[in-house]
């Protein structure tokens, strides 16, 4: 991608990304509201959809991997996701097990 990209060049990448995002949103919505699966099954399915959609935005809309620092930026963001998982899973685990669980 350079400045020389000719004017009016059709933004296929963005349109495809947008359509997939809408599809994922609708499918997640349908899964959550119109199925009678167990809530943990639903959660896992729609969480996977969410992660795919997030990755799509990062790569297709935000151009995470481009530029001379693409590797650095991607690495930093992935470390961010690692931290996110640690904080969320760790906190949830600690706050809902052990004595916490009994007090609820």
């Amino acid at each position: 991608m350079s400045q020389q990209t000719k004017k009016g060049h059709f933004p296929w990448k963005h349109i495809i990304g947008f359509l997939i995002s809408i599809a994922l949103t609708l499918v997640a919505f349908a899964t959550a509201l119109w199925t009678d699966w167990s809530s943990s099954t639903i959660f896992i399915i729609i969480l996977i959809f969410a992660v795919i959609q997030a990755a799509l935005q990062l790569v297709m809309f935000m151009h995470m991997t481009e530029g001379e620092d693409g590797g650095l930026i991607s690495g930093n963001t992935l470390f961010g996701f690692f931290i996110a998982v640690v904080i969320i899973v760790g906190t949830y685990w600690l706050m809902t097990s052990g004595h916490m669980h009994m007090s609820m």
């Binding site: 685990w93 600690l94 097990s97 052990g98 004595h99 916490m100 669980h101």
Partner: peptide, 8 residues
């Protein structure tokens, strides 16, 4: 000592 599970 806060009362976490043994696993934690």
């Amino acid at each position: 000592t806060m009362g976490n599970s043994a696993e934690a």
